[in-house]
Design a protein around this nucleic acid. Sequence first.
DNA 1: GGAAGCATGTAAAGTGTTACATGATTTT
DNA 2: AAAATCATGTAACACTTTACATGCTTCC
Lengths: 187, 187
Amino acid sequence: MKLTAPSYLILGMLRLGIRSGYGIKKAADVSTKHFWPMSLAKVYPELASLEDAGLIVRSDDPHGARSRHSYEPTEAGEQALLAWLGSLRDAPPHVRDERLLRLFFADALPRDDQLALLRRLRESDEAAAAWIRQEIVPLAGAAEQAGTRFPVAVARLSADIYSFAARWLADFEAELAAETRSTGNDR
Amino acid sequence: MKLTAPSYLILGMLRLGIRSGYGIKKAADVSTKHFWPMSLAKVYPELASLEDAGLIVRSDDPHGARSRHSYEPTEAGEQALLAWLGSLRDAPPHVRDERLLRLFFADALPRDDQLALLRRLRESDEAAAAWIRQEIVPLAGAAEQAGTRFPVAVARLSADIYSFAARWLADFEAELAAETRSTGNDR
DNA sequence: GGAAGCATGTAAAGTGTTACATGATTTT
DNA sequence: AAAATCATGTAACACTTTACATGCTTCC
């Protein structure tokens, strides 16, 4: 079995004490989603592969009549995670942002629409920053008490980047608006 | 035909005066790659679809004995691009960054490896910022003279974000290093 | 004359998501 | 009692990339 980023995401979540596939998906949605989204349909087959490879062990942990599997990393699983964390080669980040693509081609728009586009972009970055600070940072902050500090650091970094982008866009917006007023040229 | 982001990327590049499929790929690699990577194997079928939909027209433009197709947006193509640029619904950005995933789980590493990881991350962000400023901004800046200002703005925004992230990581690195020295605790 | 770049396209493979299918438990 | 949440898993589909296949032109 070839281990990929989702494999390590799951190994890492298990190491943090999360037990079920459903739990991993939920945790990922409020923590790693911004830089590594993952669907449930990815989690379950990946758990099965990791078990086949001997990196995790499964035990039954039903809740009443509702079935539940409890997974834990094996010694080999822990080692695989550590090896990946310490490995030197970094795959370059992979971003797909339709909003930036719009901005890139915004010269085709009349000035008013350019300003509206910039405003929407800024607002969505502001909303993302606010959401991370309100929903994610407090959760991760709780874990910080237990000596797990990197999740909260990553959440703060993400929020700060969104805020930085929002400020940048606000400045550009102001510059463009000022130009429009002084020249009266809407192109 | 359902138009997707790659369709508009191609329409937008054609509108900027790029003519061939190969040229579109090359231009995308030095401009939109950071927020919308695209392979040649995507470009050619997409051009064919856009032609079938009547949004672009193809003409032959051989260079000696080497065949070349020259594409141009039709009136309908221009309208489709403008409609997309002005449309209100934004698909949320989609990021996959294995480096941040590593950072998120870095609590599992000994302190020295944590610092090394932070340093690598910072250096790769610094390199990305430098690369954009040296390779992309000058190219886009040339177009700015011709009244095309958004490409250079997006390039500067990207570079500034990378620089901001690098500074943030440097601060965190310093904080962690200071702690280590004062406590002598390598965890 | 060779290497790098220009130029077009297809096929296979990989990766991941949405939708489907099912059912128990907890909260309102 | 209904709705939300917990929980597991599969099948079909969508999207993209890597590799393959080919050949001309320009630069060194």
